[in-house]
Amino acid sequence: MHSEIKTLLYEAEEHYLKPAEIETFKHCASFLAQRLETYELLRNQEIAIFQPVADQLLERFPQEKQETLERALKHWLSVLRYCAMAMLLNNQEFLQRRILEWLTDMVQAHQTQEIESALYQLLQKQLKELFTEQQLALVQPFLERAEMTLLRSSALAQL
């Protein structure tokens, strides 16, 4: 649950919420509504987001085994699913623990950083086409965290 709402619930133990607290609550509720709307879009558009990415990825890496490209796509399909839930929960730790910790070694072991970096760029391009700036801004911090953890830290480790 959102930590701000949780704090308000604890503090409201023996009094009505003060006007400023009610404002915070309203703000959280409307923020949550926006997040839920974006979550639904991401959920419903999953294939529309990823099919063009898959097509362009295939064009970009024609020599690569299809299995490798499919594995990279599956990684990012699942990253986006976890990003969406992390956005809804407003919780970066959820993303880190449930998927990033899990995938980091896999990406490194398969040495698919180049493919996955290209995939990430294509995904960003596609999201920009399908989502408004405001919607994108909600999910972007989580995607950036995923990119940083999976692609940049492993690139540094390789140096």
Binding site: L77, S78, F94, R97, R98, I99, E101, W102
Partner: peptide, 11 residues
């Protein structure tokens, strides 16, 4: 299903 980390903290 696209399973992630089964042994995740908090899960």
């Amino acid at each position: 299903r696209l399973p992630g980390n089964y042994f995740a903290t908090n899960a």
